[in-house]
Design a protein around this nucleic acid. Structure first.
Lengths: 133, 133
DNA sequence: GTTATTCCTATCGGAATGCTAGGAATATAG
DNA sequence: CTATATTCCTAGCATTCCGATAGGAATAAC
């Protein structure tokens, strides 16, 4: 249960790779090979990270990707949300949705608490934390 | 992300229903109607909860389901694992699996920490907590 | 203008999810 | 002993999501 999609796992591995490649930019193909990720699939993932402002890219020959900020300034919550969207265990946590079961949707708080717990964990970790252990 | 399967949501709603029905046992159909859950689908879910020892059942006319223990003695971690199996964000957390990327699977600790965080949350809550908001 | 790269869009097979169907087993009531 | 109410078991099915692939357009360096 709660398995993390490969999309997110790959995205994080790519960020780790970039963080460890220091200043120089890496190409998508290079990262894919080093991390054993399907090259074309990774392209799309890097595109997402770019659109979220976590990485910068340069096109054309000698192009590639690099981190937009220092690893310690990249919170993992941002990363996860960039790749898979907000953590939302159950649909009824949205304000717009209203639960009206006879018991009054008691589990709502339970799920809400789970979301907060997970969000806090992600928010408390930076890319630097992931690398340094 | 991290959306909880309806199976688990329904299972918990069913347990809440049983907990609030006190001593008397409820039929699957009764719970399904009260909680707006597909009757046949719920039957299977209750079967799982029964096989895990969380609820007791009686067959035949006047049969039904009831909690196997007091709500305060039912930890939500048990419930979740009964319905969906162990929390396991990424496959490489198993001992048998070995990661050998060039970066040495640095994110492993990160995912391991996530699993612990989620498990602790579930383990810290009982069915009684869920009911009492 | 050739080459290396990002970027965009479309597609696809397989697995999981959520649900349905049918009926067998079992207990109670009369 | 029959009718009825219920759990229990197995199979199947439609849809969606996931992971991956394909082809090529845009762009930049040399």
């Amino acid at each position: 249960m709660f398995s993390v999609p490969t999309r997110t796992q790959y995205g994080i591995r790519a960020l780790v790779h970039l963080a460890m490649s220091e200043a120089r930019s890496s190409t998508s193909a290079e990262i894919a090979k080093a991390q054993s990720i399907s090259p074309k699939y990774l392209e799309g993932i890097l595109g997402q990270l770019k659109n979220s402002g976590l990485v910068l890219s340069e096109r054309g020959a000698h192009g590639g990707y690099r981190l937009a900020r220092e690893p310690e300034a990249i919170r993992m919550l941002e990363v996860v949300e960039a790749l898979e969207g907000e953590v939302k265990p159950v649909g009824c946590l949205e304000d717009s949705v209203h639960c009206d079961f006879d018991v009054g949707c008691l589990p709502r708080r339970f799920w809400s608490g789970l979301k907060e717990t997970i969000d806090e964990y992600f928010a408390s970790k930076t890319l630097k934390d992931v690398i340094e252990t």
